[in-house]
Simulated assay, not measured.
Amino acid sequence: MSQGTVIAAVDGSVESQAAAQWGAREALLRGLPLHLVHVWQDWSPGFTHAPLTGADTAPGDTTITRHWAEHVPHDVAERVREGHPGVHVSVEQVFGRPVEVLLDAAKKAEVLVLGSRGLGALGGILAGSVSLSVIAHAERPVVVVRAGERAEDEKQPGDGPIGRARYLDVVLGLDLTRPCDELIEFAFSAAAARGAALRVVHGWDVPIVFGHDPEAVDPGHGVAMGLREASVLTDVLRPWRGKFPEVDVKEQCVVGGAADHLVDASKDASLLVVGRRVRRSAIGPRIGPVTHAVLHRAAAPVAVVQHL
């Protein structure tokens, strides 16, 4: 399997089925194959419960669990093939620890797709610690798709048949203190593949003023700062406009924390793209507060791209 592959993790849940369907659509857009990975863990000799089947097995007896596990990826693959006959779909079942298996798979992927519960009774949570761990460690882009995500959710409403309707904007959250080529290129490529506009959102804060500096307290000072931020954003994006002339770029500099603005932008976006800076802490890799917030609250699929 080459790196030019879209990989989706499946486990039989509605979240993972949405991820597989999104992965198929992405594979079509990119002209790539789709590879479905199912991780199976043998929980014996303890008491086990076969997911979705509701069937319990006695200690040491994993017959039902194994039967269910063996059918999961193939059943999902059949649904994907029915809905997307133009996509080459392959299936792999791997025995092991989910985080380790998925991180290894991500190394071979153009993009790894995971399912999410999206907004729920608890205010929006990812589908378990596995997704967060994979996102925090993956070396390749990871896309998180909420349960119930449909193809029509990514298209302009009332714009003709769904197959020919225009895509909603791709939204990129960009920190100008450390703009990353990999992050920007992913967002431009995603917009180009969809024939969509790229909306680049940069959030900045007005510095807290101490003392009585007339220039600092002048309302015009904030306006000047905003113009400078907008100018820097334009400069950063200029070479990428040249590489992707077909992409309509919308620049948006906003005052205040980026997370709230990105979550709001995701309501009418086909894809939200954010970065994950490579940094270590005493408790291990982190995904950053903005990325963490949008993963929990965004209405659109979220692509997380690692960068230095």
Rank of each mutant, 00 (worst) to 15 (best):
T65V: 11
A18V: 11
L52A: 12
L233E: 06
G60E: 02
A109I: 13
R79M: 07
P285W: 03
L308S: 15
T63C: 01
A193R: 14
Q156E: 04
G46L: 12
P219N: 02
K267M: 04
H137E: 07
P141A: 00
T177H: 13
V10Q: 05
L237E: 07
E100W: 00
L271H: 09
G120D: 10
V80N: 12
A20C: 07
P51Y: 05
A298V: 01
H292K: 10
E152T: 14
S129K: 07
A27D: 06
V232I: 14
V274Y: 09
V302D: 07
D75R: 05
K250T: 12
L119Y: 10
D213W: 04
V304W: 08
V263C: 08
A193T: 10
V101S: 10
S16P: 11
E215S: 04
V290I: 14
V247E: 12
V39L: 00
T63I: 01
V209A: 07
R199Y: 01
V10F: 11
T65H: 12
V89E: 06
L172D: 02
V209Y: 06
M1E: 07
D11M: 02
P73G: 05
G257T: 11
R81G: 11
A259P: 04
E251H: 04
G220E: 07
K107T: 15
P207F: 00
A138H: 12
R228Y: 09
T62C: 03
P33Q: 11
P214Q: 05
K243P: 01
S129F: 02
I64M: 10
D61I: 01
R146Q: 09
D264V: 06
A58E: 08
Q21Y: 05
L122M: 11
A191P: 15
E229P: 04
E246G: 10
V113W: 10
D42S: 06
Q21P: 09
E182T: 14
G195H: 12
A269I: 08
K267V: 03
V72Y: 13
T63V: 01
V142E: 06
A77R: 08
L28W: 05
G46T: 14
G211Q: 06
T53P: 15
A136N: 02
D235H: 15
T63F: 05
A77V: 14
G86N: 09
V232F: 08
P214S: 04
H137Q: 14
A106V: 05
I287F: 02
G31K: 04
V171T: 09
K243N: 10
L34I: 11
L132D: 08
D153M: 11
D42Q: 04
W240T: 08
S270N: 11
G120F: 05
V305M: 03
H84L: 03
D153F: 08
V304N: 08
D181E: 14
R79V: 08
D153C: 03
G31D: 00
V113E: 03
H38E: 06
W40K: 07
H35R: 15
Q41Y: 12
A187H: 04
G203I: 00
V87E: 05
L183A: 06
L172Q: 04
G211D: 10
D175L: 00
E110P: 04
